[in-house]
């Protein structure tokens, strides 16, 4: 099979990889922001559940989390299907790491900024959203870009629950054509190209959030 034909077959898998990664990234951002803010709270009742989530999803393997959601949850009557399980596992896993990025960036805003907000009598919510958050976001973006690329590469794991993404499609194609070298070279290049897209996208976001100097 010529390269063009291999690439055409792989492109359907590529599309699924992009969709799963994008879905998981969206979930990860939501979880990271919620859990990161919650872990920054002074109230232990807010901090605790977030810490539990972060430690569980950081402390266990992403592959096992995926298997757990896909194979074990249905036994408790929760069967969300392979794609949703893939998005959930990858998103919750990346979100746990992201929560630490959010917490770290919030902590890194100088104490003087909080002092100034208190001295101006701003409410705690106003302080968070108007003073702390806009300064914390620029610090979150470079590590968030790292996590997004990590997430993209982890998405190959979901081939193991038969989601027909890039790696899964490649495996199928290999068994039918035996063109191992061509196929995995193309797959390698495809992941690399996607990673470059993420890097470029993050650059744009970083520029937008940059604090004018």
């Amino acid at each position: 099979m010529p390269y063009a034909e291999l690439a055409a077959t792989l492109s359907s898998g590529l599309l699924v990889t992009v969709q799963v990664t994008a879905g998981a990234a969206l979930l990860a951002v939501v979880m990271a922001v919620i859990a990161g803010l919650a872990r920054s709270s002074r109230n232990p009742l807010v901090r605790w559940p977030a810490a539990t989530y972060v430690e569980i999803f950081r402390g266990t393997s992403a592959l096992v989390q995926l298997f757990w959601i896909y194979f074990v949850l249905p036994r408790f009557g929760i069967d969300i299907g392979a794609i949703a399980a893939a998005v959930a596992a990858l998103g919750l896993n990346a979100g746990a790491y992201g929560a630490e990025v959010v917490r770290g960036a919030i902590r890194a805003v100088p104490q003087g900024q909080r002092d100034a907000a208190v001295a101006l009598n701003l409410s705690p919510a106003r302080t968070l959203f108007r003073v702390i958050w806009p300064q914390a976001v620029p610090a979150m973006l470079p590590p968030a870009g790292n996590l997004a690329i990590e997430l993209l590469k982890n998405s190959a794991l979901v081939s193991l629950i038969a989601v027909s993404e890039l790696t899964f499609t490649a495996q199928l194609l290999r068994t039918s054509t035996l063109q191992t070298t061509e196929i995995f070279t193309l797959v390698l290049l495809a992941y690399f190209a996607l990673a470059l897209c993420i890097t470029a996208g993050m650059r744009r976001v970083e520029r937008r959030w940059k604090i004018a100097a």
Partner: peptide, 27 residues
């Protein structure tokens, strides 16, 4: 009570006017 700090502690993401306006609007 108002306070002015040794290291200014202006909000770096707001211009001078926004720094001064923030509290009158929100407080």
């Amino acid at each position: 009570v108002g306070m002015v700090f040794q290291h200014f502690n202006l909000f770096p993401h707001m211009n001078a006017l926004q720094n001064v306006m923030e509290a009158p609007v929100s407080v």
